[in-house]
Design a protein around this nucleic acid. Sequence first.
RNA 1: GGCCCGUUGGUGAAGCGGUCAACACACCAGCCUUUCACGCUGGCAUUCAGGGGUUCGAAUCCCCUACGGGUCACCA
Length: 490
Amino acid sequence: MADRVRTRYAPSPTGHLHIGGARTALFSYLWAKKHGGDFIVRIEDTDTERNVVDAEEKQMAALAWLGIQWDESVDVGGPHAPYRSMERTGIYEEYLKRLLTSKQAYPCYCTSEELEQDRERQLAAGQAPRYIGRCRDLTEEERSARESEGRMSSVRFRVPAGRKILIEDIVRGDVSFETDGIGDFIIARPDGRPTYNFAVTIDDALMEITDVVRGEEHLSNTPRQILLYEAFGFKIPRFAHAPLILNPEGKKMSKRDESIIQFIDQYKELGYLPEAINNFLALLGWAPAGEKSEEEIFSLDELTDIFSLDRISKAPAVFDTGKLKWMNNHYIKEASLERITDLAIPHLIKAGRIDSSINESEKTWVTRLVGLYQEQMDYVAQITDLTALFFLEEVEHSQEAKTVLAEEQVPTVIGAFVEQVKTHEGELDPEEVKKLLKAVQKTTGFKGKQLFMPVRAAVTGETHGPDLRESISLLGKERVMTRLETFLGQ
RNA sequence: GGCCCGUUGGUGAAGCGGUCAACACACCAGCCUUUCACGCUGGCAUUCAGGGGUUCGAAUCCCCUACGGGUCACCA
């Protein structure tokens, strides 16, 4: 590996950062960083009709949130600027001219109607749909005739016949394609804008990309690009095609797939942590080697260390949402309570649970509340439902709670507890609650389940939940009293 | 339809010719706990899509079949 390793992630600005794109970016980034090389983000915006206004910015923000840092791109520039295809049209024109001059490319005057008919005919005849070569060998006269008709021309690359193109793929090994199976493909649209295969090849070559990492759907594009590399005498990079990501049902993901959340932004909003997403994505279609294969919790730095393209799997990877939740829960438990609280507060505000401007003591209260549930959250947005009972005026007793509250000793126990709370001076901190419960035990003689379950059921409406003393303390004297008295009054 | 690719338990997967096929998620059981959650312990593929070979020996190599997928765009 003589050259400095340079990889790139080249999205089109047509939407949000997708989990598949994020994984590709991650793999590319890890590989470059492992070798002390450069990671480039380049925007492939040649399909101007489909471009979406904020997409570029949003995708890069999502990448940054994940902690995937680029060395060269549209915002920070770099030695190969510009990094947006549509700002590189002059470059493409020059290379296009070369191909036209050498007759390796030719103008095509076919209309989309003609092309569509060809296609249908081939399909009907059970043939591979590909360009039939109508404009391949037009004479000068025929060309000018079409041009005087006012026909627009795109430019096609002349695919040589009878050749075998070998792709030495790091993931898949040697894969070969016959050029006879590839039709002459369009490299420039009538208005001169390059198509993907053309732009990506020139950009990768000029930007000195050494390793092209991308999804499997690009594998069959690769021979076309190799043809282009050859036509220009460019050095061919190494390729690594990562397997597709399937939804939890093992099916190909579609745009409107309800079974899976597909965009990084959405995970961020739900309160997934970037380190969990990275860790999970890294393991989607890749596994560490050797002794590390028994572990699965890895930081970005560790991943940078142990990642290797040749360990990428050839088989498609199923997106296991359960595993993602488990992993995120792991990182939530590991994170500081302050960090999780800061993430939780917006959710609580949005749900109308707390005010958008909270003071210090309220913040302390919220922190304690979040702390009560930190270890069981799969993602931070769950905090709203998890803490619901702390914001209710009155509780509704679950069926189990009703059963508990129907027990014989309950009026005695609750009555005694009410007495304790009523006569207690000052705040109810957990230690105080402990003492009060102890006192109830003394005066009533009930202890353990017979004591705690009725109190829990009456106060929270549930027979299970987090630490009772802390819960009562957080609920506060007033609300606890209201709930207990409401219960006794029934 | 042509060309490519893939197939290890419910899921992610290790395994690259030689013990009873790692590990993790999920699941089940037990322990811990006033309850839940967390945590801990144990269980969970007589078998590697199916069928043929090669070999003393195959999940690992070869062939065929089945199934799944990618692609054949003036989309990336």
